[in-house]
Design a protein around this nucleic acid. Structure first.
Lengths: 249, 249
DNA sequence: TTGTTTCCATGATCTAGGTCCATAAATTTG
DNA sequence: CAAATTTATGGACCTAGATCATGGAAACAA
């Protein structure tokens, strides 16, 4: 492709990438889901200045790893990430998946070191928010602080639900709940709530839900037999959201 | 006891209770663990004014229940609490236990309604922090905001560890991890790290760890046979913290 | 193109821990 | 205080889902 004799498409792609990455918060399609929500335009301009945009990560590349010094919060701009923590004996737990507009690193604030490994699931990009600058800014911008608290609180509530899932639900209920949670998040982001890509591997899903990979495969096959979903590789289509909801327990 | 002809002990008890409950933040034994950490004394005085102290709850009494309007954060002053969330079919999950100096209700900020039921495990008391006042105060008190963020972040990190426990650990590992987590928290509060009361029922423990009550009983008995612990009803004594740590996985 | 590796699906077996039951101890109530 | 209820323990059995094993399909490298 680099030696293509027609240079226009490549040029356009690059231009588009530039544009997407340098876009100001107020023009960003994620505005509604992201930190600046509710800020006045002059506050927004200040926030804009401290954000480091345009950070790209390839599949499997780490955003940070456990015990790295905590410097910044990250907001997913495009693509997706997973976070993992490890038990002393090597077993690990995928603690979350993160999609555009979602924050990564919130659990690092209290210790000033990152508490997990964060890895890109596909080619992805983030906005980096240096925490010190953010705090500095927050002093004169109460709404920013409220937004941060809200973000943390939301993730906390989500994790409590996940505890219910991990502790009390059957394999089928876990998968149904997981698929609907993804559906909801994609819908909130303006994507289809019924057709999307499972950017994480089956192994990641299994791990996250406290199941074996084999179980995930089997249940997904069963869901397919029951006409609840159609799966083709990583692409999934939810055929009967009502029944899936009923299965969540 | 009310008709005791010697009135002095009762009078003293009441005086003590009064004193304990109205004590100012700066004189509180929980100061080090609580919100005011790092505030200057005039800031502290302001915080003192918005705190509603002296709220007592009896065993089983609710601090709040799901979907109640969120108005305040609570800090445990004495005693202990549990929080629970419910699946649609009645199964529920104990999402946390809370001891003196710990915050309850942080996951309610984002929805403005409480996300769980919070119940006293014994006669307990809390300090109530009306959130609006707290936010108002936070505008001129950056350190207060940082403290709040830190609190949230800490609970978030704890919940991620709990996900690892629920998803990946065996029954024995779960119990060992749980006991050591309590031990650590009591130690931080200046209590014994080896001798304490399990104020929650075996059922609550089982539920929290994603186990059956019977399993909890059996494992605790096994730990006792192996001279790791001594249990007498709700009182527990850790005999071999080293071995317990090794069992955590 | 052909290894090489990673990922996914599915069948066959095994087991940790759940469920069910009975009893005993502790706590609450009247 | 006894009666009633709740809470704790332990045995017998069973099942959901883990583990083991195999083969095929993508993804990746050389």
């Amino acid at each position: 492709m680099a030696q293509s004799n027609n240079v226009t498409p490549l040029f356009n792609d690059l231009a588009k990438i530039q544009r997407d990455h340098n876009i100001a918060c107020q023009d960003c399609s994620l505005y509604r889901l992201c930190l600046p929500l509710g800020l006045h335009s002059d506050d927004l301009a200040q926030l804009d200045q401290i954000i480091k945009r345009s950070q790209s990560y390839k599949r499997r590349q780490s955003l940070f790893t456990v015990d790295n010094k905590f410097t910044s919060l990250y907001v997913v701009r495009s693509g997706s990430f997973k976070t993992m923590i490890s038990a002393s004996n090597g077993r690990d737990q995928v603690t979350g998946f993160y999609f555009p507009g979602e924050f990564i690193g919130l659990d690092a604030i209290h210790q000033q070191t990152y508490q997990s490994n964060a890895k890109a699931l596909e080619s992805s990009s983030v906005c980096e928010l240096p925490f010190e600058n953010l705090q500095e800014l927050g002093k004169d911008m109460p709404k920013l602080q409220v937004q941060l608290l809200t973000r943390l609180s939301k993730e906390l509530a989500g994790d409590k639900s996940l505890m219910l899932l991990l502790g009390k639900k059957t394999a089928g209920e876990k998968l149904a709940t997981f698929l609907l949670s993804l559906s909801k998040r994609f819908q909130d982001r303006g994507f289809s709530s019924t057709e999307f890509q499972l950017t994480m591997s089956r192994t990641d899903i299994a791990n996250h839900l406290g199941l074996a990979v084999e179980t995930v495969s089997r249940i997904l096959s069963r869901f397919q037999e029951d006409d609840l979903i159609v799966i083709t590789g990583k692409a999934i289509s939810l055929q009967n959201i009502g029944k899936l909801k009923a299965l969540c327990g």
